[in-house]
Amino acid sequence: MRIVSLAGFLFAFWLVLSGHYTAMLVAAGAVCAILCALAAVRMRIADAEGHPIHLFVGALTYFPWLAWEIAKSAWAVTKVVLDPKLPISPTMTVVKASQRTPLGVNIYANSITLTPGTITVGVSGNDLTVHALVRDGAIDLEGGGMDRRVSQFEGSA
């Protein structure tokens, strides 16, 4: 199931990138997609972590939410950059990740890094070391709103 879906995605990727639809090229694309999917199986990356199809439904609502968070925090950082006084207060903090799987922790850490103003510097187990540009960003993260949203996304499977 997972392998078929992976090969399907690779084939769609080929079709989009090529733009030529002669029988020869489409057949070559199909062969390449299947070979790449098999290679992924042999490399053991076609598992629940490497190709998480069970998260697709949750992703439909999670990524728009994340995009809105990114827009909000990017605007906050923009105001800091354009302020003549440059009001920064760099802060280090540790936040708990309450996700159950390594994949969930990874999604949380990458979401923190993607939102401007906060960067995940280190991960050990379920503790994420976070560097924030302004103190409020660190306090917001400690509040755990994003953590709960990611856990909900992870549990939506």
Binding site: T91, M92, N110, V121, T129, R135
Partner: peptide, 27 residues
């Protein structure tokens, strides 16, 4: 790829003892 590069950069910088200047350490 953005978060991967940023994380790798932060890790390498800390490894090379380039410490961030902090206004507050809440760790």
């Amino acid at each position: 790829t953005g978060p991967v590069v940023t994380h790798a950069l932060a890790q390498s910088a800390l490894h090379a003892r380039v410490e961030p200047e902090l206004a507050e350490d809440r760790r």
